[in-house]
Design a binder for these strands. Structure first.
Lengths: 249, 249
DNA sequence: GTACATAGTTGACATGGATCAAATCGGACG
DNA sequence: CGTCCGATTTGATCCATGTCAACTATGTAC
């Protein structure tokens, strides 16, 4: 079917980092203009995933990491007994799959939260390239470091903070990440379901729901379904106690 | 003072990876015999830290990562308001400081749990070297990936598991890590205080203590102070529900 | 439009583990 | 070898959040 429309078939797999609007967030940010071609050579324009589709799961042999181009992704670990732990949400410009390098299979499952397109970086080639471009290598180390930090922050949130603090922290994290992508930091729509939020933050869905309405009653946020408006960011920071960027940001 | 004993002053800072008994666990494992010299060139034999001393803290400018040579280390994040979150325990052959690459300062505080010696790898030089040795680079990526995975497992433990499950998982993790170092997997002494265990696992000290005695009453373990004997590993695996390696291992 | 499924909200109640308090242990040091 | 201080254990009580249940809203297929 798709091949009935061989539109631009000539270069179907090559992505253009040069023109990508995310080049200041994604891997290109660590590369000089003139070396960008070398990244483009290895990047594969991935296909587009519909909401709910898996980019990979824990049974997929490890091959690549993926940059979110548009849409969003959630990663989670599924245990033998079927329990799920959401380990992260990824927005455009962010890299998924850094937790699996050197493993046989992916260490987590990545699922599109909405219609999502990705760029694929075959790790073997990327490693080869980072061996040649010190800046890029450094950037990879840095990204992975941050991933570790993020996860530590999450652990912290999970072990020390109340339901309200966790949710406030998540909202703030999302806010700043939307902002960096030049979207409103106060008005956005959550890409994930309440269920995912609950799972990610180690709470019951009911608790998430209750906290949302509590925040709403206090005039801190306005929420209808997935549409959220942050009315009082300072109050949120107050609640999150940390006065800072918890989890990802 | 120290220089009153200029014993072997000639090469005081150079470590010998060639002769190190940990070379099958540490960075050397990724390096061919003939390239090992290049690692030795950049490694600095770090000094020895007494129990409680900081290897670095969050105000230390980032410079190096450290391999534990003997003893053990705990890392933790200290928040502005003074709360501590223990993020990991590190045993001989393991690398500390991978969460801070590319940051101005260390992202956590590392403290010796006992008399501990470390090898220091200045990151700038290490990056240079990994640029030349693809195997080593790959190994670094792999280590960092595992660090992310570990942290995700911890998050999972914190958000989904009961006190008993968490403690069983920790004991099993320690057990397998002792084993890999050719020490008894069933008889060992905990390098960390109950307090650290509690903090790491997101529990109150009292809870940790109670679970230990409960396990003891059930004949699963024998514990007096920090001395622990695992009497029934299968039972522990049963309890930890995951039937597998949670957190680090 | 109706119906069914899925997601979200709200209420009532139960509970694991936190907290507070106190006793005991253990080890460092004079 | 006794003292002191921190670490650990044990007991009693409380509460934030999980669980169960019911209801509502939203979306989707026919």
């Amino acid at each position: 079917m798709a091949q009935a429309i061989p539109f631009r078939q000539a270069s179907p797999l090559k992505a253009s980092c040069h023109q990508c609007s995310l080049s200041n967030l994604c891997l290109p940010l660590a590369i000089e203009e003139n070396d960008l071609d070398r990244l483009e050579d290895i990047v594969q324009q991935g296909r587009i995933f519909n909401r709910g589709e898996h980019i990979f799961d824990q049974s997929t042999p490890y091959r690549s990491c993926f940059a979110v181009k548009s849409g969003s992704i959630k990663t989670s670990i599924i245990t033998e007994n079927g329990e799920e732990q959401v380990t992260g949400f990824f927005m455009p410009g962010e890299l998924v799959g850094l937790d699996s390098i050197g493993s046989e299979h992916y260490a987590c499952t990545a699922k599109a939260l909405e219609r999502t397109s990705v760029c694929e970086f075959p790790m073997e080639k990327l490693e080869e390239l980072t061996g040649k471009l010190p800046e890029l290598q450094h950037h990879m180390y840095h990204l992975m470091s941050q991933e570790i930090q993020n996860s530590h922050q999450l652990a912290m949130l999970l072990s020390k903070n109340t339901a309200e603090e966790r949710i406030a922290a998540l909202l703030l994290s999302l806010s700043s990440r939307f902002q960096r992508r030049r979207m409103s930091p106060t008005n956005f729509s959550l890409p994930m379901a309440r269920n995912d939020i609950a799972n990610f933050l180690g709470l019951a869905v009911e608790t998430v729901s209750r906290v949302f309405t509590r925040f709403q009653n206090q005039g801190i946020i306005k929420a209808r379904g997935r549409e959220v408006e942050l009315l009082d960011i300072e109050a949120l920071q107050m609640v999150s106690r940390e006065f800072s960027r918890q989890c990802n940001n």
